[in-house]
C-alpha cells in the first residue's frame, strides 16, 4: 500500500511543498513530487526516518561584554531531543573571551554533535564597567521620605 504525505521542505527559503509517496510504514520513499532541487529528496528521506533540525540558542557568559553568546549545533540534531537539549543549555556557563567557532560542548546529549559558538564575546574591559550610581532600590514600596540626600 502506498501512503501519501505532504511536508514542507525547510532546507532553503523556497520552502517547496513536497508530496511523498511512501510504503505503509512511512519509512521508505517511493516517489517524490514538488521538490525543486535534489536536496528536497534528501530532506524527504531523512524526514521519514530520522528528522533533524539545527539547534540554535544561547549560553551564558561570565565576564563578557554581553551576558550571552549565541551557539549552534555543528550539525542537525535529532528533532526530538531539541527541547531537552535547550533545557540543558540553561545550566551551562562559559567564560569570556569566547571566540566564534569555539566548541562550547563536545557532545550534545550523546548525539555525537558539538555545540559551537556562533559569535565572539570579548572580556569586559575595566573602563567599560559603567559608573555605579548610589541609588537604593528596595522593590517599589516606598514607606519613608522619598527625598534623596544630596
Amino acid at each position: 500500500m502506498i501512503v501519501e504525505k505532504e511536508i514542507q521542505c525547510v532546507i532553503c527559503p523556497a520552502g517547496c511543498e513536497l508530496r511523498l509517496f511512501c510504503d505503509a510504514t512511512a519509512a521508505v520513499l517511493h516517489r517524490l513530487e514538488g521538490a525543486a532541487c535534489a536536496k528536497g529528496r534528501e530532506f524527504a528521506e531523512r524526514e521519514l526516518t530520522d528528522p533533524r533540525r539545527t539547534l540554535t540558542s544561547t549560553v551564558k557568559v561570565r565576564g563578557g561584554r554581553f551576558p550571552l553568546v549565541s551557539v549552534r549545533s555543528a550539525a542537525p540534531l535529532p528533532k526530538h531531543i531539541l527541547p531537552a537539549a535547550v533545557a540543558m543549555l540553561g545550566a551551562i556557563w562559559t567564560e569570556a573571551p569566547v571566540a566564534a567557532g569555539q566548541i562550547i560542548l563536545a557532545d550534545i546529549m550523546g548525539a555525537g554533535i558539538a555545540l559551537v559558538a556562533t559569535e565572539a564575546v570579548e572580556r569586559k574591559k575595566n573602563d567599560e564597567i559603567p559608573e555605579k550610581r548610589i541609588v537604593r532600590v528596595t522593590g517599589f514600596l516606598y514607606n519613608s521620605n522619598q527625598r534623596r540626600e544630596t
Binding site: 527559503p13 539545527t54 540554535t56 540558542s57 549565541s70 549552534r72 566564534a100 556562533t118 559569535e119 565572539a120
Partner: peptide
C-alpha cells in the same frame, strides 16, 4: 541567533551573527 542566512550568497546555512561577522 537562528540559522537560515546566507544560503543564496554562500551556499551555507549560517546563523545571523555568523553572517554578520
Amino acid at each position: 541567533v537562528h540559522d537560515g542566512f546566507g544560503l543564496v550568497r554562500f551556499g551555507e546555512n549560517l546563523t545571523g551573527p555568523e553572517y554578520a561577522a
